[in-house]
Design a protein around this nucleic acid. Structure first.
Lengths: 153, 153
DNA sequence: TGGGTTTTCATGGGCGTCAATGGTTCACGA
DNA sequence: TCGTGAACCATTGACGCCCATGAAAACCCA
């Protein structure tokens, strides 16, 4: 699947509808199901989302081994049980369930944040804080990053 | 991919467009996606940029670690989440998002600096200062560099 | 080697298209 | 019959596409 990158702020209308950024839609559509799977992030006040392919990896028994240790197996369950299947409407919008909106502290605007194979949905201001903190943390640590060697990616 | 080398100063027009130097374009086009991925350098007031292949290496490395962020993981996420996908227009220009322009202190001109597999975008004057400092630092340290023997790449 | 010619690249601006948004109607189930 | 939600349509504003221009470099030939 094409990479999901970039940040896009879209408006939530009074019906709770939000346009999913076109570039994300294109990537997700190629994924089988014309829509997204969304579940609350357990670490942040944000919504985790992905396409069908990624979701299948979570739901399959293999996923538990690849991605989660024993304890985190529980986590997969939590994710699956809390996941919503949100289809695109004709204009490429989704309707955010109230529960998710509350969890992510969403009101007027939703920020879609690409994370490669998945993406997150944040309140723009919350994300700004989160991003800033992470940025400063990395900077103050003088962080460096080892890249996988060419051809392994 | 062909090596990205050299420094090129191009103008930023009033729409925020900049021509990417032809030699860079050719190298990046061969990379799958006709455009660049750009994200703020966390060390400097500059923009880091690369092609799709490089970005996928970052994404691939992060995917396996997801949900269990140690500090190092944080950094990779910051790169991915802050990345913008900037396609070339018909003339080989990209549009720089305002956020990146602010981060890199860009106004009228943008300097493209080749770094092998990636490149950076600087304000020309900032870069001159940076270059000078690095030069002096190396000189005062009496820096030397061991080259790999010929044939080792 | 020098001058003239041609091609390529960077730049500017106008215009059309499409993505995002808002509202209204329609279908269906309670 | 009412409420809910999905499809339909209309608006607008940003972005991509196109062409036109200028400058510089590459090229060619005498």
């Amino acid at each position: 699947m094409a990479l999901l990158v970039g940040r896009h702020v879209n408006k939530i209308d009074r019906k709770g509808r939000v346009s999913v950024p076109k570039s994300f839609r294109d990537a997700l559509n190629a994924d089988g199901f014309a829509g997204v799977f969304a579940y609350p992030s357990f670490k942040y006040a944000a919504i985790d989302a992905c396409g069908e392919a990624f979701m299948k990896r979570l739901s399959g028994g293999v996923a538990g081994l690849d991605y989660f240790s024993d304890e985190q197996d529980d986590l997969a369950l939590i994710i699956l049980e809390n996941a919503d299947r949100l289809p695109f409407d004709t204009e490429g919008r989704i309707v955010l369930p109230g529960e998710l909106m509350e969890h992510a502290n969403l009101a007027e605007k939703a920020m879609f944040v690409g994370r490669g194979a998945q993406f997150r949905i944040w309140d723009p201001q919350d994300y700004e804080r989160h991003r800033h903190q992470a940025f400063e943390r990395a900077r103050s640590r003088g962080a460096t990053l080892k890249l996988p060697s060419e051809g392994e990616g």
